[in-house]
């Protein structure tokens, strides 16, 4: 578990590359950073600068090749699949493409965020928790709609609900507000900040949205795979 000594995320000397031999392309160069508990940390930089690669490395969605990533007190380099799965259950992910399950309703998609922890509590309580967060995100009348019946913004809100419903310790978000209007985008980020204040949830977000950047506790800029500020 996270101790008061260990920050939720500590990255040291991280290098990452794709391909091998002559086709090898280095995406991250000697990156070191820490993410503080309860903080909203924004990663920004031009397209192809390595933001998403860094986010997925910190979120244990990619194997660490060189350097160190300590996530919630556990080293990810060389970590077993089981321990990575256990770690991921303590995280929330919001993807740019929302990645909703097309055959599940908004409520069922959100429930998947709870059921990953197993049959904890009764089904009615889980159902109520899913409905509650969807209500908060303005999807009350559409909780039993399939994703194909929802707009891009509504789908993104379902993805956000799915990530937040289990009260994760860290939320990783890749352009979460890209499909939302300005007001809804700000509302989502305020919600993430409120979670940080109330429960100590840290958020690491990749975004180009200038309105959101103002709300960040910390901004890390990355260019050509190198951290240049933050």
């Amino acid at each position: 578990m996270t101790s008061h000594i260990d920050p939720p995320i500590r990255v040291e000397g991280l290098n990452h590359w794709f391909g091998a031999g002559e086709t090898r392309i280095q995406a991250i160069f000697d990156a070191s950073l820490t993410v503080e508990r309860g903080a909203l940390t924004i990663l920004r930089g031009p397209s192809g600068s390595g933001k998403t690669t860094l986010l997925t490395l910190m979120g244990s969605l990619r194997k660490v090749q060189d350097g160190s990533v300590r996530l919630l007190g556990q080293e990810l380099r060389g970590a077993s699949q089981q321990s990575q799965e256990a770690l991921r259950r303590r995280l929330g992910f919001i993807f740019q493409a929302h990645n909703l399950h097309e055959s599940l309703t908004a409520r069922q998609n959100t429930l998947m965020g709870l059921q990953v922890h197993g049959p904890r509590g009764d089904a009615a309580k889980q159902d109520a928790a899913a409905a509650h967060i969807l209500e908060i995100l303005g999807l009350g009348p559409r909780i039993d709609y399939l994703p194909e019946k929802l707009s891009g913004g509504q789908k993104q809100r379902v993805a956000i609900a799915r990530a937040l419903v289990s009260n994760p310790e860290i939320v990783f978000a890749d352009e979460p507000t890209a499909a939302l209007d300005k007001e809804a985008g700000i509302q989502v980020v305020r919600m993430l900040k409120a979670l940080g204040a109330a429960r100590g949830t840290s958020t690491v977000m990749v975004t180009h949205d200038t309105c959101i950047i103002e709300l960040a506790d910390r901004i890390i800029t990355i260019e050509d795979g190198k951290l240049v500020s933050g």
Partner: peptide, 14 residues
């Protein structure tokens, strides 16, 4: 595939 990848990312075991 993307939906299964999402489940994996959420921590669902294989």
């Amino acid at each position: 595939m993307k939906e299964y990848a999402t489940f994996k990312a959420m921590g669902y075991p294989h």
